[in-house]
Nucleic acid binder design. Structure first.
Lengths: 210, 210
DNA sequence: AACTGTGAAGTTTTTCACAGCC
DNA sequence: GGCTGTGAAAAACTTCACAGTT
């Protein structure tokens, strides 16, 4: 759980902002200038009251009778989420998953740039994957420290996830996106998020008949 | 939102069960036989009361004074989640992401088997990716119907996600795991879950300084 | 002694509903 | 007329705390 001591804004609200942002950018792509809590809500399957209340935590971004200026709201949300800047990210693990992450072009225009790709396997170190040359994990801590990198994506086998995470934290990383299907423990000040497709699938099968 | 009309068990509870299951399997790997709500909670960063209450929705799986038999609880949770069977899954999109998904070996022992991999691009149709030969998307609906497949993983570009999802639903798919960074609309009876790494990253940057 | 299962209490989150503005 | 922002009400969720069991 994120440390909310200083602010009063619920984490669950923060978690919805990226969804609003994604939908807003989509609307802009469709050449819309203005939207409403109702329209956004319909797209996201979230009530309009919810959206208005969430946004109201950060100031009055809308206009009565009119709605929200899409460009303006995008800008504001980017500032709130601190993605009105580009964050450098490292990827650990150059297997199938790390490789797919490294090839993905969708980070760049949403606030993130992959700076390095590390792996422990001598067979892949030095090889080119996407725009990166795989670097040895032995150089990881030093690089992270030298470049003041705060965010890591972890795509190593489950059995190594905890120890690599420990190294990342020790090197100064403050946010980890863990793709390994295992819980890892980090200090409270370090942010952690998980991506495990199987948990999503298992959540859905509950509702299927069969 | 899943349709909870019939049952009274909150979706948020269902969403935690896969996490319990994952942790339990880990404990078993460590050769433990028995655990407690306290031990599980510590690993998952969830309160022990929460875990006990969640599990109590499905019956008394534990023993006072002792805790939970790990094998027994795993079995019970698998039945609750309906993964005491193997679900066939199709993957749509054979790009970097679809390819990584198709190579991933972690589905099999958690209740899912990839049956087919589809793509629209003639250049990749017929090619081998992992254990699969990429099939044309034109054959998708018929195959899904013929094999009574209920689950799909969607790894196509955002601009095609909605139309492919429509086809999937039309063909009888009842659960979609969408990797495209866009919201899609499906009938209420169809389950949908999203995987978008960027939303996770954006949620974490809010808490970083800088 | 250790731990579960659970009502009751407490907290958080969502929805309602409407005053106020464009 | 349409829409936001927001207190107040309602609903959902989590934690407490303890009786009961092994």
């Amino acid at each position: 759980m994120p440390d909310n001591a200083g602010t009063s804004i619920p984490d669950i609200v923060i978690g919805r902002l990226p969804l609003y942002l994604r939908a807003l950018r989509r609307l802009r792509q469709e050449d819309k200038q203005v939207t409403s809590s109702h329209e956004l809500g319909q797209r996201l399957d979230i009530s309009s009251a919810q959206i208005r209340k969430d946004l109201s935590h950060f100031g009055g971004f809308g206009k009565q009778g009119t709605g929200y200026q899409i460009d303006f709201l995008i800008e504001k949300l980017q500032v709130v989420l601190k993605i009105n800047q580009e964050w450098m990210v490292v990827v650990i693990g150059a297997g199938n998953l790390g490789s797919a992450i490294s090839h993905y072009r969708g980070f760049q225009d949403r606030g993130f740039r992959i700076a390095h790709l590390f792996d422990v396997n001598p067979a892949v170190i030095g090889q080119r994957i996407g725009d990166f040359v795989v670097r040895p994990i032995s150089a990881m801590s030093e690089t992270i420290r030298a470049e003041n990198i705060k965010i890591a994506m972890l795509a190593v086998p489950a059995e190594h996830a905890q120890s690599v995470a420990d190294q990342l934290v020790e090197a100064g990383v403050e946010a980890i996106l863990n793709y390994a299907p295992i819980n890892i423990n980090v200090p409270a000040k370090v942010q952690i998020q998980y991506i495990d497709p199987v948990t999503h699938l298992q959540r859905m099968t509950y509702y299927l008949d069969g």
